[in-house]
Amino acid sequence: MENKLKISQSQIEQLQQALRLTQKLRTHVCQIFRDLGDGFSEIDLSDDKPEKQKEVLNSLRNTLETVNNDLSDLEKVGQNLVAANPSANCDHVSLDPILDRTPLYSQLLHSYKWTNKMHEHATVAFNLLSQNALKRSPHQSLAGGGKRAKRLTSTASAVPPAVVDSLVATLDRQHADMLITVSRPLGSCAVVQIVLGRVLKALVVLRGFVIEWVKVKGYNEDFTTEDGRVDIWSTSRYQVFRKISDHAAAAMLHYYAPYMPDIGIRSFALWLQGYSNLFSAPCHKCGKFLQNAMPPTWRDFRTRDPYHDGCRQ
C-alpha cells in the first residue's frame, strides 16, 4: 500500500512538473502570437533604421528559441510519465466515506436483477413466438431467412387487381348471405363493400391482399357522400356499429397473415359473417341480450360465439 502511494507520489510530482512546463510553453507561444498579431510599426521596419529592424528580428528569434527549449523540456518530462492505470484509483473508492452514504450499490444490484429478469422473459417470449405458425412480423423470421420474409410481405400488398377481384368473387359465392361488391375509386386499392343479410354494411379497403381499413354501418346507412362518391371515413350514427367497427379493426389485425395473405381475408370475411345474428343471439356467457343497452357486439375469433364487450375474456 505504502509502496503504491510512493509511486503515485512521484507520479504526481512529474505530472505537476509537466503541467508547469505546459503552462510555460503556452505563455511563450501566446507571447509570439501576440507580438505577431500586434504587428510592427512602419517606422521600426523602415529602411532608414536597419538596427531597429535587426533588434525586432532578434527578439523574435529569441522567443522562438525559448519556445523550442520549452517544447523539448516538456517532451523529456512526458517520456517519463507512465500512462495512468484507470483502475488504480478505484482501490481508493472504497475508502471514500461519501460512497457509503449514497445508495449506489443497492441501485446497481437492483438494475442488475432487472436486466437479468428482462433477459429471461425475452428468451421465453422468443421461444413462444417462434412456435407460432402464422408469423406476422418480418423481424421474427430474421433468424431463419430474412430474405424470404421480405419477399413474401411485399407480395401480399402487391397483388394484381384481377387476382383480388377473383378472390372477392369467390368469397361472394361462398357466403350466400353476403353481398360483396368491389370498386376502385382510390386508385389501385380495392374498396370492398359488404352487405350482410339485413343486419349491417361493411366497407373494407384492400391494398393487394392486405386489409387496410374497415368501417361498419347499419343496414339503413350507406357509404356514399352527398355528391355520390364512396365515403370510407364517416362513422355510423349508431353506437352498436361504431363498437363493431372497433372490433373489426381488432379482427383485421388478428387475421393479418403475411405468409398466407388470402387466408387473412377469407377468415376475416368468415368472422364478419358471424354478425348475421347480431340482434337475435344472446350473449354466450351471461345469456342476456342487452348489456349497457348494447347487444353482444363481440364475436370470438375462433368460435364466432357472441359476447358482450364486458363478458368476453
Binding site: 339485413r198 343486419v199 347499419g218 343496414y219 349508431y238 352498436v240 356499429f241
Partner: peptide, 18 residues
C-alpha cells in the same frame, strides 16, 4: 324504438328484454 335494426323478427328478443 331500436334504431340500428330494420327487422322486427331479428331484434324482438332484445327489445322484449328492454
Amino acid at each position: 324504438e331500436y334504431s340500428p335494426c330494420v327487422l322486427a323478427s331479428d331484434c324482438w328478443g332484445l327489445m322484449k328484454e328492454l
